[in-house]
Nucleic acid binder design. Structure first.
Length: 505
RNA sequence: GCCGCGUUGGUCAAGGGGUUAAGACGCCUCCCUUUCACGGAGGAAUCACGGGUUCGAAUCCCGUACGUGGUACCA
């Protein structure tokens, strides 16, 4: 039954790829990989008014970064090309005409103004429904009311028209959802959705059904916001291809804003203080850049892990999953029904965990880039040395700079206020310490012994001297063990930094 | 308004008739470390409400409330 699994993600190139979108791709991808199936990426660019230049490439870039590279798409092609809906216009028209011919759809000539007037009228009559449906369609300007001659004449005269599905009232439309079980709708409450727009482009409803059929999609996972229009899709399947060929549906729960009010949307970007896009998104119209998880300092493994677990778990206590583990353990029926609020703190925790688990080799290029962005051309060898030393205290890859910059250059500001109870005695200690350091073997144990022996001689507790030394070397109250820092930056640099601060105290 | 979907600590969640109702994030305390982390040990905090069914309900049923999605020639 699970043979020839084909799943698809069909984004609209209208803006950045947000959390919900990536999670939908992820679940599709995991399912496809698990069943040795195919992951198809199709582009929904039928809305000319909202189409954004560059958005398609951006989607590919995001998916590649996440490790969710599709098997078939506009980029690498595939047996069912084209994968861009704007290039499939003629195909949709054919099926729309078929539906009209079979009496399942009709031409409608109502202008936007007339539609608006209809809704106003319905509102005024305190009707329960404001929809273009069975109860109202015989009062509108469409091929159901007009004679055949009138209809053809209007079309021939170039009067703009749309094709709408004709939903017969009084039926029960139901289907099985892999997450929710059986879902039922009354056809009376389903409206006559537009299938073909006046500009000759299909709407999502027609396109998704036709493409899923033609591309032999076996499982369709999409966001919960599509649930209300599912009956239209079921009807189209019934009329066009028969429901036995219909994909199995799964409507994924929404990702909600942290306060729980509303689904997380693209607009929420910077307003909420955390990214909602996978990668930086530059709005070509306004030039505005919305920050992405990648640029914020997230590892793709952590990003994808965090997303997978927002609405799914394998029933065990495991929280950290590699892509391979997720492929092995994912199951669509363990996906939650309810929406989940996004928690940035938890997202950062995942990233921290992944940084701790990542090898120096893996981290190296990312950390190198962070230093470069901050204007520091870090020495490769030294960078290799310090990554394992500081990675436990980095939550984001961008933290490596602050946590590691002092290895490459002397601090320029010192948190001198942190040095309390400074006196001549302590100053004398450091003066002799730098003298003694000159002849000390340069290893961690040696430096520490020298420090502690001298402290004992001067009668000062070593603990009281460690913080001042840290401030001298690092500039603030952070970083790894002081003696380790001293060892790494070297004898000369250590002495120079101590001298420098001594002069300021 | 109408239709759909949902509801276990602040958040993510396990549990699907009998449990001291797991675990994680966050928060708090302590230990380690005289830095910040990491690590370790503890703590506070939960089954939306009301009715049923049952010996027994977080779990099954019905209502209500609340939330959320849809109600476009957007996807």
């Amino acid at each position: 039954a699970m043979k020839n699994v084909r799943v698809r993600f069909a984004p609209s190139p209208t803006g950045g790829l947000h959390l919900g979108g990536v999670r939908t791709v992820l679940y599709n991808y995991l399912f496809a990989r698990q069943h040795k199936g195919t992951f198809v990426l199709r582009i929904e660019d039928t809305d000319q008014t909202r189409f954004v230049e560059g958005a398609e490439q951006y989607i590919f870039d995001c998916l590649n970064w996440c490790g969710l590279t599709p098997d078939e798409s506009t980029l690498q092609g595939g047996p069912f090309a084209p994968y861009r809906q704007s290039e499939r216009k003629d195909i949709y028209k054919k099926y729309a005409d078929q539906l009209v011919k079979d009496g399942h759809a009709y031409y409608a000539f109502d202008t936007p103004e007339e539609l608006e007037a209809m809704r106003e009228k319905l509102k005024a009559s305190s009707s329960n429904s404001l929809q273009y449906d069975h109860s109202i369609r015989m009062k509108m300007k469409n091929s159901l009311n007009l004679s055949e001659a009138e209809t053809t004449q209007m079309i021939d005269n170039g009067v703009p028209y749309v094709i709408r599905i004709k939903v017969e009232p009084g039926q029960n439309i139901s289907f099985h959802d892999m997450i929710r079980g059986d879902v039922h709708f009354e056809s009376n409450t389903v409206d006559d959705k537009v299938l073909m727009k006046a500009d000759g482009m299909p709407t999502y409803h027609l396109a998704v059904v036709v493409d899923d059929y033609l591309m032999e999609i076996s499982h369709a996972f999409r966001g919960e916001e599509w649930l209300p229009s599912a009956p239209v899709h079921i009807l189209l399947w019934k009329h066009l291809f028969g429901t036995d060929k219909m994909p199995q549906w799964a409507h994924l729960p929404l990702i909600l804003k942290p306060d729980g009010h509303g689904k997380l949307s693209k607009r929420d970007g910077d307003a909420l203080g955390f990214p909602v896009f996978a990668m930086n998104w530059k709005d070509h119209k306004t030039g505005e850049i919305t920050k992405g998880f990648k640029e914020t300092g997230f590892l793709p493994e952590a990003f994808v892990n965090m997303l997978a677990v927002l609405g799914w778990n394998d029933g065990s206590e495991q929280e950290i999953f590699s892509m391979d583990e997720m492929i092995g353990k994912f199951s669509i029926d363990r996906v939650h029904k309810g929406g989940a609020r996004f928690d940035f703190e938890k997202a950062k925790w995942y990233n921290h965990e992944w940084i701790k688990r990542s090898s120096t080799e893996k981290l190296f290029p990312l950390v190198k880039a962070v230093f470069t962005v901050n204007g520091c051309e870090a020495d490769d060898e030294l960078l290799h040395t310090i990554i394992p030393v500081i990675k436990d205290r980095c939550t984001l890859t961008t933290d490596f700079y602050q946590q590691g910059i002092f290895f490459f250059q002397s601090p320029s500001v010192w948190e001198l206020s942190a040095i309390s109870k400074w006196d001549e005695n302590k100053k004398a200690f450091f003066l002799s310490f730098i003298d003694r350091l000159e002849t000390t073997d340069w290893n961690m144990g040696g430096i520490e012994n020298c420090f502690k022996e001298l402290a004992a001689e001067k009668g000062i507790k070593p603990g009281e001297l460690q913080l001042p030394m840290r401030i001298m070397l690092v500039g603030g109250k952070f970083g790894p063990a002081v003696f380790q820092i001293a060892y790494i930056i070297g004898k000369e640099e250590t002495i120079s930094r101590i001298k420098n601060v001594l002069n300021q105290l």
